[in-house]
Design a protein around this nucleic acid. Sequence first.
DNA 1: GCATGCATGTAAGGAGTTACATGATTCA
DNA 2: TGAATCATGTAACTCCTTACATGCATGC
Lengths: 183, 183
Amino acid sequence: MEELNPTAYVILGFLDGQPLSGYEIKALVDDSTRFFWAASYGQIYPELRRLAEAGLVEGKSRPQGGRKRTVYRLTAAGRSRLRAWLHEDPSSFELRDEGLLKLFFADAAEGRSAVSTLEAKRRHHEAVVDRLRQIEEQSAGSPASSRQVVLRYGIECNEWMARWCERTARELEAQRGAERRSA
Amino acid sequence: MEELNPTAYVILGFLDGQPLSGYEIKALVDDSTRFFWAASYGQIYPELRRLAEAGLVEGKSRPQGGRKRTVYRLTAAGRSRLRAWLHEDPSSFELRDEGLLKLFFADAAEGRSAVSTLEAKRRHHEAVVDRLRQIEEQSAGSPASSRQVVLRYGIECNEWMARWCERTARELEAQRGAERRSA
DNA sequence: GCATGCATGTAAGGAGTTACATGATTCA
DNA sequence: TGAATCATGTAACTCCTTACATGCATGC
């Protein structure tokens, strides 16, 4: 049993429950997992083909009018593969945060670069919070699910990060002020 | 002026202040930026060569005994390039969190998969906190710097994440208990 | 008629990891 | 003598993004 690439599981996960086209999967990803697991067309379409060859999904032509369209559904093998993966402990966690990197080296830049880096990072996290809150409102009333638990994580975590940036920027400004006065 | 790849700036950043060999840069990365910006030998050595060709760093042979060794230092052009980058707002922030992905799809797995996913994620963040605390102790006493600010971020953020996992796992367990009793 | 959205795909390239190969030095 | 560490590098590969190409449908 060959290893599946990580993005394959996003596809299997979304196909569990309802059949979807590649286009629909991309739209769902952009509205949900994108903040911790992105996927582009360049991954999704080739991956759907590979999964079909491996017998984990099954594609059927379902044109809408004269517009061709292929809808995929999970096979029994695909479903058990998804479950097996869900029961393994997660192993990978990767972060690439350019703001933290700039902050890390900020001593090398004279001026208020650290503070403006923090402000930009704060704005980023606040924008994510706004976006996730919109999604939360849209799904208000639907039954409680693990998807909403993850959404809460996204909101609360980004709020924490935004507040940290705010607080740290304030501390650095105060420090710079004190240094200027004593100099 | 061609774009530098993002990892180039890690190298420039560490070379600001002291000259280093590729091996030493890798060791520094593993002890600090790794948690939000990793780099492997496969990136560092070719990138040092490219930066030297671009005139941003300068390499000198500094063998240690019979062991060959090349030490790089930042040129004036490299230093101004680093400063220019530090003064731009950070743009990229990427996260790939397999634990969140498994939690997101946990409804598809019967049993307590969500809870054990949360516990594994919690253990991960706790291990990171332990590692960062060790680094913090080693650097205790050295002058306050933006590097320590980032270290505090790493510690506090991972603590927040670990606590969130703990709290959420508790809530899910309580919910499952209630469902079993009412069923 | 034109913009927008639905729908599928590929090609090129960037970024990064892993595994491997090589060889000196240090220390137990 | 052998393990660990210092030191440099490459080749193969995976993963992913971006840009492009194509074409139908819908609604203004």
